[in-house]
C-alpha cells in the first residue's frame, strides 16, 4: 500500500542494470571495428580505427572542448528560444478555437520538414559568425516538436477533471493553471527531449556552412577538408556525446518535475 518512489541509489542501480547490456553491445561493436580495421588494413581516410580516433580525441581535447563550448552555447540558446516559443505557441493555439486544428496540422507537417536545410539561409540573414544564426536553426528544430506535443497535452485533459472544475465554478484561468498546464508538462518534456538531440544536429550542420572560427561544426568540416580523418571522427564523437548529454539532462529534469509520469511508465495503474 505504501509504494514510495524508488530511492536514488536503487534508481541509479536500476539505470545501470538497464544500461549494462547496451554498454556491452557498444563495446563489442568498437572491438569488432578495431579488429576489422587492423585485419583488413583498410585505409585510414576510409575508416580510422577506434584507437586512432581516441588518440586524436586526447591530442585535440583542449581545442575540441573550446570549440564545443561555442557550439553548446548556440544549442542552449536555441533550446531556450524553441522551448519557450513552442510552449507559448501551444497556449496561443488552444485559444484560437476553430482554426487551431488546421494550424496544428500545418505545424505537424512543418515538424517533418528538414529544418536543417534552412541553415545557409539563416547564415545569410543573421550572419555567418553570429550565434543567432545557429540558435535560430536549433530553435526551429526544438520549436515544432514542443509546439505539437504541448498542444496535444493541453487538449489531452481528462473530461472528468474538466467536469470537476466546472462543478467548482472554476474560471478558465484556474482550469488552465491547475489542470491543463500540469497535464501538458510530460508532453512538453517529450517535445523538448526530441528537440534536444535535434538542436545539436541543427547547430553542427549550420556550422558546416560556415561559423565562428571556434566551433565544433567548423572544426569537423576543417579537419575533413585537411584529410585528418581521425580528428574528424573525434569531433563527431564529441558532438554525439553533447547530444546524448543534453538528452539526459532534459530527461533528468523531467523525472524530477513530472514524477507521476515516471510512475505511469512503470506500467502501474
Amino acid at each position: 500500500m505504501s509504494i514510495a518512489p524508488p530511492a536514488p541509489p536503487a534508481r541509479l542501480r536500476g539505470a545501470l542494470a538497464a544500461g549494462a547490456p547496451a554498454l556491452a553491445v557498444g563495446a563489442a561493436v568498437v572491438l569488432l571495428w578495431q579488429l576489422l580495421v587492423t585485419a583488413t588494413g583498410v585505409q585510414s581516410f576510409i575508416l580510422p580505427s577506434p584507437t586512432d580516433i581516441f588518440g586524436a580525441l586526447l591530442d585535440e581535447l583542449p581545442t575540441i572542448l573550446r570549440d564545443a563550448r561555442v557550439t553548446l552555447a548556440a544549442v542552449l540558446l536555441g533550446m531556450a528560444l524553441g522551448g519557450v516559443s513552442g510552449l507559448l505557441g501551444a497556449l496561443l493555439l488552444t485559444r484560437l478555437g476553430r482554426i487551431s486544428g488546421p494550424l496544428l496540422t500545418v505545424a505537424v507537417i512543418l515538424n517533418c520538414a528538414p529544418v536543417v536545410a534552412l541553415a545557409p539561409i539563416a547564415n545569410n540573414w543573421l550572419g555567418v559568425t553570429s550565434i543567432w544564426s545557429k540558435a535560430c536553426v536549433a530553435g526551429l528544430m526544438v520549436f515544432f516538436p514542443v509546439l505539437v506535443n504541448t498542444t496535444r497535452g493541453l487538449r489531452d485533459v481528462d473530461t472528468l477533471h474538466l467536469e470537476l472544475m466546472s462543478a467548482l465554478a472554476a474560471r478558465p484561468r484556474h482550469t488552465l493553471l491547475l489542470v491543463r498546464l500540469p497535464r501538458s508538462l510530460p508532453f512538453f518534456f517529450n517535445g523538448l527531449r526530441l528537440g534536444a538531440a535535434a538542436s545539436v544536429i541543427g547547430v553542427i550542420v549550420s556550422e558546416y556552412f560556415g561559423g565562428p572560427s571556434q566551433a565544433l561544426g567548423v572544426y569537423i568540416a576543417n579537419q575533413a577538408a585537411l584529410s585528418r580523418f581521425a580528428e574528424t571522427w573525434a569531433g563527431v564523437l564529441a558532438a554525439s556525446v553533447m547530444g546524448l548529454a543534453l538528452f539526459a539532462v532534459v530527461a533528468g529534469c523531467e523525472s524530477r518535475l513530472v514524477p507521476w509520469q515516471r510512475h505511469r511508465h512503470d506500467g502501474d495503474t
Binding site: L160, L164, A167, L168, L178, P182, L185
Partner: peptide, 15 residues
C-alpha cells in the same frame, strides 16, 4: 459551490 461531487472514478490530480 453549494454541493460537493464524487464520481465513480476518484479523478484526483496526479501532480
Amino acid at each position: 459551490r453549494d454541493y460537493g461531487l464524487v464520481f465513480q472514478q476518484a479523478g484526483l490530480l496526479d501532480w
